[in-house]
């Protein structure tokens, strides 16, 4: 028979970006250990609704760890205690009966709280818009096999491209830096032969847009620990090298104009 857990929850509640927030303390009894963390919140919400209290707002959609919509701090850890797992894939069997669980939104200046546990991560989209693409207008592509990509390169690009854009890296970072996210996108595109023509422009623009929104990286490595896709810190080093090169190359390109 499924084991049931009785939990003590402290959930952050906040009406909007400019309102004062506060914790809601609530007992969550009889939670099946097979439930996911978000299903546990669903149960809590159904009980709140029964008591005419507005349910807790949190971001979620796929519940398969791929869309990147979910994400909360659980006892101070982004996405909670299980390694390489987004909160929607975290299950209650990772907790013990009687546990106190503190649930808070991502905390970072560039991710303002919209309501309760839901935050605004649009700054990530701005970084991608600054150059996180390869310009290949529809219809212009050569046959796919005309540009061979060594398997090792394709695999490494895929490792980087696996980022789901959840923002846990920023939330976990003491400086709210977005290096892991930005470097993952840069590495995906800069490693591939197709990404070379725009490489230096892309790097400079994306890094500088990132700096407009986010803090500075001081190599804590917390981002990697929190990342549900285990994006490697090596990509940050790769980005830093490319950025230095980009500065030089873009200057000399500019002087040739």
């Amino acid at each position: 028979m499924t084991k049931m857990l009785n939990l003590k929850l402290r959930i952050w509640r906040q009406d909007g970006p400019h309102s004062q927030g506060a914790f809601l303390d609530i007992d969550a009894d009889g939670i099946p250990e097979d439930a996911s963390f978000l299903e546990m919140l669903d149960v809590v919400n159904e009980r709140l609704i029964a008591d005419d209290i507005e349910p807790v707002t949190f971001g979620h959609d796929c519940r398969e760890g791929i869309c990147g919509t979910c994400g909360v701090m659980i006892n101070g850890q982004a996405h909670g205690p299980e390694k390489a797992t987004a909160v929607c894939q975290l299950h209650m069997r990772k907790f013990d009966d009687g546990d106190e669980i503190v649930i808070e939104p991502w905390k970072a200046q560039s991710f303002p709280v919209l309501k309760d546990l839901m935050v605004d991560r649009r700054a990530f989209d701005r970084i991608v818009e600054a150059g996180g693409y390869i310009s290949a207008p529809t219809g212009t592509a050569p046959d796919a096999n005309e540009i061979p990509v060594p398997k090792e390169v394709a695999d490494l690009a895929m490792d980087a491209a696996a980022c789901i854009g959840c923002g846990a890296c920023v939330a976990a970072c003491p400086n709210s830096a977005a290096q892991l996210f930005t470097s993952a996108k840069l590495a995906h595109l800069n490693l591939l032969p197709q990404g070379q023509p725009e490489r230096w422009r892309r790097t400079e623009n994306m890094v500088e847009t990132m700096e407009d929104y986010f803090g500075t990286c001081t190599n804590h490595g917390e981002c990697h620990e929190a990342c549900p896709k285990e994006i490697s810190l090596d990509f940050i080093a790769f980005m830093n090298r490319d950025y230095v090169k980009a500065k030089v190359k873009n200057r000399s390109l500019a002087s040739q104009r």
Binding site: I134, T140, P142, A144, P150, K151, A157, H188, Q194
Partner: peptide, 18 residues
């Protein structure tokens, strides 16, 4: 063709082809 040109990291053989 379109997706490969955009940089979709499709699985590759050792020879670099799809």
């Amino acid at each position: 063709d379109q997706c490969a040109a955009q940089g979709v990291p499709f699985a590759r053989e050792y020879g670099g082809l799809l």
